[in-house]
């Protein structure tokens, strides 16, 4: 059994600020049921520019609910600039710690906060501050985790092992093919951390051009990874028995773009195949109302 702190139990058994803020100024949604956790965070700003109300709705385990609940308490009364400095380790600290394996719950809180603030700036037609945006190279294909996410988690939390990186970001939790690369990032960061001693206050995120599109947060990336797994493994396996194959091209919201290859490509029945069977399979296994769209090469 997990060893949760009294604070985690308190926030789980007596969650604060459950719900959706009416006329919210910003709403952030990360994760999905298929990933195992999801969080919708909403907030409203007062006339003084400080967060006057914040609420959450969470699908997830005890520590996910507790992390969401404590986060709403932490950001109330903060300006957006102050709120943007709330990091995942602050959430964990406020809960008197989380088990290592559960640190990704605090990361989800931070991501929902980021998403809600980005939503606010977009609604206002304002430029999103660059520290809220990240862009990077994909390291973990299974859970779609980027290099910067891994690097930030290592630097902020002084992680030392691949296992830690998996507990914090989910990266490396699937096929393990990226373990050498994670180790490489760990080695790089380890050298930097030694140079910087004793405690780096700011994350090692590189400043980015504001024009760069916000990349999906890891929890959203996991959703895409799930869809990819379903398409390229389970569905592809079935098609291969008929000499066909399928590739995932892109996921945009609820639209899943795929390319049929082999015997399926150019088959008159392929459109029916896509609309019918593949869509049904995807919907059933993700619980999402996904639309499948064929890209012809």
């Amino acid at each position: 059994m997990w060893k949760y702190s009294e604070r985690v139990y308190d926030h789980f058994f007596n969650p604060r600020n459950v719900g959706l803020v009416e006329n919210a100024d910003g709403v952030g949604e990360v994760g999905s049921m298929a990933c195992g956790d999801a969080l919708r965070l909403s907030f409203k700003l007062g006339p003084d520019g400080k967060i006057c109300d914040a609420k959450f709705q969470t699908f997830g385990c005890g520590s996910a609910i507790a992390s969401s609940s404590v986060l709403t308490e932490m950001i109330k009364g903060l300006t957006l600039e102050e709120a943007s400095k709330v990091k995942n380790e602050d959430i964990a600290r406020e809960l008197d710690g989380l088990p290592r394996e559960k640190m990704h719950c605090s990361v989800m809180g931070r991501e929902a906060l980021e998403a809600a603030m980005i939503d606010y700036y977009k609604r206002q037609g304002k430029q999103v501050p660059c520290e809220l945006l990240s862009q990077g190279v994909l390291v973990c294909q299974c859970y779609q985790v980027e290099r910067d996410t891994i690097r930030n988690a290592i630097m902020q939390n002084r992680l030392r092992t691949i296992e830690d990186v998996t507990h914090w970001t989910k990266a490396g939790g699937g096929c393990r093919n990226c373990h050498p690369e994670i180790q490489h990032i760990l080695d790089e960061c380890g050298q930097k951390l030694q140079l910087e001693a004793p405690s780096p206050d700011r994350p090692g995120a590189l400043p980015l051009a504001p024009a760069a599109p916000p990349s999906a947060p890891p929890v959203e990336q996991q959703r895409v990874a799930r869809i990819r797994e379903l398409v390229e493994q389970d569905i592809a396996r079935a098609l291969r028995t008929d000499g066909g194959d399928i590739e995932l091209v892109e996921v945009r919201g609820r639209d899943v773009y795929v390319r049929l290859v082999g015997a399926c490509a150019g088959c008159p029945a392929s459109q029916a195949t896509i609309k019918g069977w593949i869509e049904q399979q995807l919907r059933e296994h993700t619980g999402e109302e996904l639309e499948v769209i064929e890209v012809r090469s």
Binding site: C35, H285, G287
Partner: peptide
């Protein structure tokens, strides 16, 4: 059979093999 109770990221391999949606 949830992922969170086992410490792994995947829910039950048994339910997965039966084709029970991840969500369930």
């Amino acid at each position: 059979g949830s992922a969170c109770t086992s410490g792994s990221l995947e829910p039950s391999h048994v339910l997965k093999a039966m084709g029970v949606p991840f969500t369930a």
